[in-house]
Nucleic acid binder design. Structure first.
Lengths: 333, 333
DNA sequence: TTGAAAGCGCTAACAA
DNA sequence: TTGTTAGCGCTTTCAA
């Protein structure tokens, strides 16, 4: 059974398709009677506009693309939720493209957005992405692109990111405030991710800055770089056997926090009595501890909201100078 | 700067657009020379087919829709990952539609899929959905629909679900096996979700069946219905103060398990020495415990994979009788 | 082997 | 106020 088209309506009413089209859009030129008649028939026959025809005619899609490097449990669901909401509010659709941590696929995804006439693109880059040439065509064709979370810093582009250094510093300050009056000598350790990543380096900077400012010693013995849940877990286990256990721990991310919490469970460490912890987190993981682990909120939801907002402003044609925008990172706990 | 079209290529080569189109598709009727020449020029000029035009011509979209009731952390990310993979493998795109637990929006989303010419739809229903009339138009128009996870049981449709009763029974049996030789008297409790939901009722059935089969008493004092993380948490805390603490716990879902784990952390319950637990889970949450909590895997990933597979078979035109399919629910632990 | 022409469904400039 | 016409870019039938 074929779908009802504008032509069908026109034929039934012995009028021209263009009149039907106008009537359906409440064009002021069409008489009230005509408009009513057309809309009534459209309703009766269950007319639904063919979005694909509209897309072709308009040259675009009422869709935005979301390109993500991986679908992890820790951050992306929050981002997606925010983006989906923003997208739906404006009557747009959301096309999800997954790069699977491959630059090749990221590039294909950018092309896909272009071919499909997507009106705007949100991108979080893969770890391997060292230039964004493959997005040039998109921007070139007038499709706005907003980079979020995993971005390439030196580039001139619209970016929404966490201020890693600041956020880490805030977290470290919170941690310091909690151990300042402790009886036994304070040892503060920091758990960080892959040392080669910019995000890690920035967070280390913030962490050490806070400690230095508090005149607290901060040598490299207290910095640990663990790039998986498991290595976080084993590292804390080892550390806990040392004669000088830490009594305060900075944790850079949810992934690492997961490993840390496993170790805490197994070692039956009394948190926070024996070990103060402050993390950087989206907020889901810390609640698994009682009392919940305090954290600087690096909210995927907030990031998604802000990135989408910016993107839609660009789509609406606002002239906005490409810039790096930081999301709020409030303390929770 | 405008995109290069087939016409542009044709003009440059002084041939007809139809020949260009054929050459680009390696049509056997076109001479090798012509084909080569066209493809070379296309390459040089950076020709990219306009997907929107192709969609209009074909009447469909190389896209599948995924309609989900909510974006939670517990299950959906796994489903999405699987669906995304399956979709990408076949050169399709993924349109994500979020019903926000509203039947109204679910219905709109179904329409959207229709208008957009989506080739197939995967749906997980909202809790409030009591009929699937709003998907009738879609199926009617020949777009296959596969329901997964949250389905409407009595309906004649393609469904991929967990066998709740079986899976719960397996979990309960695992739990029984673990307490069979315990010194102190065994008390087995079950933590379930909202008692009004079919999923809960089925899981209760499986649980009680296992206990009954093992000649283990199973009165209603041992069944707890908690529909949030918090109520799971407080319920276990209260339960633990009772003179006859349970020494075995069945947990129906990740959400409930989260609350249970909070209580365990706070009460410093020694798991599994003091309390054996077997859960039903996607696998992410149990790892926060050391040793990890054993579970019957109700895998979103597997469900997504299987649902997508079925959908693509239907899209490919296979005649498959609508039926309810159960995914495997292996024991992990 | 290639060209001509029509059409997917919709809209907008132009004419009447 | 309504109709005519052309065109978005692509494919395919039919004709040459």
């Amino acid at each position: 059974m074929k779908r009802v088209t504008i032509k069908d309506l026109a034929k039934k009413l012995n009028i021209n398709p263009s009149t039907v089209s106008r009537a359906l859009h409440n064009h002021p030129d069409v008489s009230a009677d005509m408009t009513a008649a057309v809309q009534k028939l459209a309703d009766k026959m269950g007319y639904k506009p063919n979005q694909m025809a509209i897309n072709l005619r308009n040259g675009h899609n009422k869709t935005i693309g979301l390109i993500v490097p991986e679908i992890s449990m820790f951050f992306l669901p929050s981002v997606m939720k925010a983006v989906e909401e923003a997208t739906h509010e404006r009557g747009y659709n959301l096309l999800i493209l997954h790069s699977n941590d491959s630059v090749q696929r990221e590039s294909e995804n950018a092309e896909l957005c272009l071919f499909n006439g997507v009106e705007g693109v949100l991108v979080s880059l893969t770890k391997q992405t060292h230039d964004i040439e493959h997005f040039a065509e998109l921007s070139y064709s007038g499709t706005p692109v907003v980079y979020f979370d995993k971005v390439l810093q030196p580039t001139h582009a619209h970016k929404i990111v966490i201020s890693d250094e600041n956020a880490a510093q805030q977290a470290a300050e919170q941690l310091l405030a909690r151990v300042v009056n402790m009886a036994r000598p304070t040892r503060i350790c920091g758990f960080f991710g892959d040392a080669r990543l910019a995000i890690t380096q920035d967070r280390v900077l913030g962490f050490t800055a806070a400690l230095t400012a508090a005149a607290h010693e901060c040598d490299s013995d207290n910095l640990f770089f663990v790039d998986t849940i498991d290595s976080a877990y084993t590292t804390l286990k080892t550390l806990w056997q040392q004669p000088t256990r830490p009594n305060a721990l900075f944790v850079m991310s949810d992934e690492i926090l997961t490993g840390v919490m496993k170790a805490i469970g197994e070692l039956r460490i009394n948190v926070p009595a024996e070990l103060q912890i402050v993390a950087m987190s989206d907020g889901f993981v810390p609640q698994f501890m009682v009392p919940p682990i305090p954290y600087i909120e690096t909210s995927g939801y907030r990031m998604g909201k802000q990135a989408a907002e910016l993107l839609f402003n660009l789509i609406a044609g606002q002239e906005i100078e490409p810039d790096t925008n930081f999301i709020d990172t409030p303390f929770v706990g």
